[in-house]
Design a protein around this nucleic acid. Sequence first.
DNA 1: GCTAGCACTCTTTATTGCCGAGTGCTAAGG
DNA 2: CCTTAGCACTCGGCAATAAAGAGTGCTAGC
Lengths: 351, 351
Amino acid sequence: MSAKHINGENRISERAQHFLKALIERYIRDGQPVGSRTLAKDTGLDLSPATVRNVMADLEDLGFVSSPHTSAGRVPTVAGYRFFVDSLLTVRPPTDEDLARMRWRFEQLTDSATLLENTSRLLSGLTHMAGVVMVPRHERNAFRQIELLPLSGARVLAILVTSEGEVHNRIIFTERPFRPAELEEAANYLNQMFTGQDLREVRKRLVEDLRQTHERMDRLMLRAMQLAHPVVESAEGRGDCHIAGQTNLMEFGELANLERLKQLFDAFHQKREILHLLDRCIVADGVQIFIGEESGYGLLNDCSLVTATYRIDQYVVGVLGVIGPTRMDYPRVIPLVDVTARLLSAALRPQ
Amino acid sequence: MSAKHINGENRISERAQHFLKALIERYIRDGQPVGSRTLAKDTGLDLSPATVRNVMADLEDLGFVSSPHTSAGRVPTVAGYRFFVDSLLTVRPPTDEDLARMRWRFEQLTDSATLLENTSRLLSGLTHMAGVVMVPRHERNAFRQIELLPLSGARVLAILVTSEGEVHNRIIFTERPFRPAELEEAANYLNQMFTGQDLREVRKRLVEDLRQTHERMDRLMLRAMQLAHPVVESAEGRGDCHIAGQTNLMEFGELANLERLKQLFDAFHQKREILHLLDRCIVADGVQIFIGEESGYGLLNDCSLVTATYRIDQYVVGVLGVIGPTRMDYPRVIPLVDVTARLLSAALRPQ
DNA sequence: GCTAGCACTCTTTATTGCCGAGTGCTAAGG
DNA sequence: CCTTAGCACTCGGCAATAAAGAGTGCTAGC
């Protein structure tokens, strides 16, 4: 028995690592199973294909590569990719061209809605994959000002401005029309009451007050709160995400399955699962990578997700990243996502 | 020579029309070239396949059908579909189920933004194709109220409410920070000046005044106008469109070409060409149909577009419709689009 | 531990032959 | 003049077969 066997099969030699790295890099480039001959040349070690075959057999035993069929080359498995990104990978920092493009894009941008949408576009443009940006949940968003305007019919337009400068509006159907003066009074009351308070607090308070103390409040207060409730609720927001460049995914041969693609796109539109997935990334700081099935979402089985958190003023508020085929150019993509997150954070920093 | 030849080949007999109709209906159902035997049964006229073949040959001469290859059945050409929808088609009014679903959807809806988006979803849901709704250009939208709020940095948040109850906001970078009082004063000035006026008028006036009469205005007025300009401009809007259910198109075999589909989806995202196309539909009232190449956009070559205009209070303001494969169920789709447009018009009617 | 050689496996591609569907034409019948 | 039956012909689709190419695993020798 060899030393490997004594060590329990779970050690991977320096050389094997080198081979694995070369294999994955090659596979990322060509997308074709890598044979022993090809790999023998790639490593630069001047070994014969037969030797390479031995090593490949070891790698297969360890579960890092597999062959699609008897006489094809080897293809990285999820475990292989995992090991690669964790221990082997040498990142390739963004080219000057990429950097320039990114800086330029971030200089153009104005308000935060456009900013986030454009960031997802930027990501998709740079990587030729799908870019996603999760919009923060407005966690530290405060009530700033509310405005109530009468519309035709028994409808009221409620506009809420938050401390972050976001504007939310909502049309509320009421049981009777209101006069402008009534609404103005109600708005004044709400503004006095809530200005500067955290939105979550405001909502909690509204809910409680509306439930419990109907009798103790006068008509005006009650009315005002009923009107404010919907718009505050919508402003607090559940978090949303922008996805750009979905269609880029159609260009990858390995995903060229109309049925699956449709499901994937539909999932992007629903956004729910994606949101949930991104939510999991927000806890860990920095770059996170989900490879293939690791995400736990069947639809993403042949896809990988590379994400990074971004921040406003020290606090992590959101996640951005790219979705692409498992066979993506990790050495390039990872720093791109990383830098984008930093640039976005910088752009969001209050001046 | 037969009578047909004397008449110059361009007459199509009653019977031939009947056959063409049956052929197209069949082809819409099955998506497969229709052979003489099949068609002989379908017409109900109890004729032999051979007879049918003669008629089909005539139809082919006239350019209404063609055969993909020697021994396939016949398939309608664009001209064939055209003749069909213009002269042959018997529409199939929406089922009670469809109607109920439509009514139900329109009852749910609130503000106009959601309304239009949901309408496109509704269309796509009913037809299993892509639904589009072109958003009106806010032609008859009036200035109602403006609000100016200071943000951190030299930034001002401008909020504009229109007579239709739409809320537009925009962050404006200024060369120096403003005090709340200043902004309030400016807003008051603008509100006095413009409330109730048509947005187009307002914008025109702003542009003119900003250009010409810098000296004659006092500081406050000038400042106010500078602040108002961007948000008014964005509120006037260039017209936009919502597209829903793109992915449905992936399910049609005849469009199952990844490359073309990608281009099509990208075009949907750009929206520009689509907008232009829809613009052409707005001039003609009622239902319009573009079959295949008729649209003039190469990307839509195997697609058809069925549109109808909708109105607010007598005035045509927008277009909606569906995009699907040329082989779509026109007898069902046409009335669906028509009814949807009517329902939308009804929903938009000011109470 | 490395290498060469060899038999083996499996995919890919091309070739072939055949079946079925459908046509066009012709000639005969109402 | 319209309709029909019959017949030869064309073409796509399918399955079976063959050949080529790539790559492997194993063994024996260096």
